[in-house]
Amino acid sequence: MQVDPRGQRLAAAITTVVLVVVLVTGSWPLLAVQTVVFAIGALVGLRYAPYGLLYQTLIRPRLGPPRELEAAAPPRFAQGVGLVFGLVGTVGYVADLHWLGIGATALALGAAFLNAAFGFCLGCEMYLLIQRFNPKNHPNREVPA
């Protein structure tokens, strides 16, 4: 599956705003909602992610076709990374470990902001790096026993 990178940047921008609000207010319910958004993108697929649906419905019809599409696997992996940080942050806030909630939220915010502002998807880069060193992707490479 291929995705429009402009939709991914919109999702990152919305996520950035949501996570800033979480940091300012300490609202664990809002972080929990964002975590569900991450979960849908990572586990169900980007096609069904709420911010992706918003882009497909309201914005993409008003734009020309994208210059290029990108593979869905890296951004989907990035959503999984966001899911982990969202879960850790939510648990931190709920367990009254605000330092953990703030730290996990801030890290997720940093990654979302990089994508929204500069088109640099940190989770996507992590995915590509992992794939590069995955022995399954290198049939000529010997795997130590």
Rank of each mutant, 00 (worst) to 15 (best):
residue 137 N to E: 05
residue 115 N to F: 00
residue 109 L to K: 00
residue 94 V to F: 02
residue 91 V to E: 12
residue 69 L to M: 14
residue 49 A to D: 12
residue 107 L to T: 14
residue 29 P to T: 01
residue 35 T to N: 00
residue 82 G to R: 05
residue 110 G to P: 03
residue 8 Q to P: 11
residue 141 R to K: 15
residue 112 A to H: 04
residue 17 V to P: 02
residue 85 F to L: 15
residue 113 F to I: 11
residue 71 A to D: 09
residue 141 R to G: 11
residue 82 G to F: 02
residue 16 T to G: 05
residue 123 G to K: 03
residue 75 P to N: 03
residue 34 Q to W: 10
residue 1 M to T: 11
residue 131 Q to S: 14
residue 25 T to K: 08
residue 130 I to Y: 15
residue 28 W to N: 04
residue 145 A to P: 15
residue 87 L to M: 07
residue 70 E to P: 08
residue 142 E to P: 03
residue 112 A to R: 06
residue 24 V to Q: 11
residue 111 A to Y: 15
residue 50 P to Y: 06
residue 77 F to L: 04
residue 18 V to E: 00
residue 69 L to D: 12
residue 98 H to M: 14
residue 28 W to L: 08
residue 145 A to W: 13
residue 136 K to D: 09
residue 34 Q to A: 14
residue 44 V to F: 14
residue 104 A to N: 05
residue 58 L to Q: 07
residue 53 L to I: 11
residue 75 P to I: 01
residue 78 A to V: 04
residue 67 R to W: 09
residue 10 L to K: 05
residue 139 P to D: 08
residue 15 T to S: 06
residue 45 G to E: 03
residue 20 V to E: 06
residue 99 W to V: 13
residue 137 N to I: 01
residue 79 Q to M: 09
residue 65 P to R: 12
residue 56 Q to F: 03
residue 128 L to N: 11
residue 96 D to C: 08
residue 65 P to F: 09
residue 4 D to H: 10
residue 77 F to N: 09
residue 38 F to A: 12
residue 143 V to T: 13
residue 107 L to M: 13
residue 8 Q to Y: 06
residue 26 G to D: 08
residue 112 A to Y: 06
residue 91 V to Y: 08
residue 93 Y to G: 10
residue 32 A to R: 00
residue 80 G to W: 02
residue 25 T to Q: 12
residue 8 Q to A: 15
residue 113 F to S: 05
residue 75 P to A: 04
residue 144 P to E: 14
residue 83 L to V: 02
residue 30 L to N: 08
residue 35 T to C: 08
residue 34 Q to Y: 02
residue 23 L to W: 02
residue 128 L to Y: 15
residue 8 Q to M: 15
residue 123 G to S: 06
residue 126 M to N: 11
residue 74 P to I: 01
residue 100 L to T: 10
residue 110 G to C: 02
residue 75 P to G: 03
residue 114 L to W: 15
residue 18 V to A: 09
residue 128 L to R: 12
residue 111 A to S: 03
residue 23 L to T: 05
residue 62 R to K: 15
residue 117 A to P: 07
residue 141 R to W: 13
residue 26 G to H: 10
residue 125 E to Y: 13
residue 2 Q to H: 15
residue 133 F to D: 05
residue 21 V to A: 00
residue 88 V to C: 00
residue 16 T to Y: 02
residue 135 P to Q: 05
residue 26 G to N: 11
residue 118 F to Y: 13
residue 115 N to C: 10
residue 73 A to E: 11
residue 8 Q to R: 10
residue 37 V to G: 07
residue 89 G to S: 05
residue 105 T to S: 10
residue 66 P to V: 00
residue 62 R to L: 06
residue 101 G to A: 04
residue 80 G to H: 04
residue 103 G to M: 07
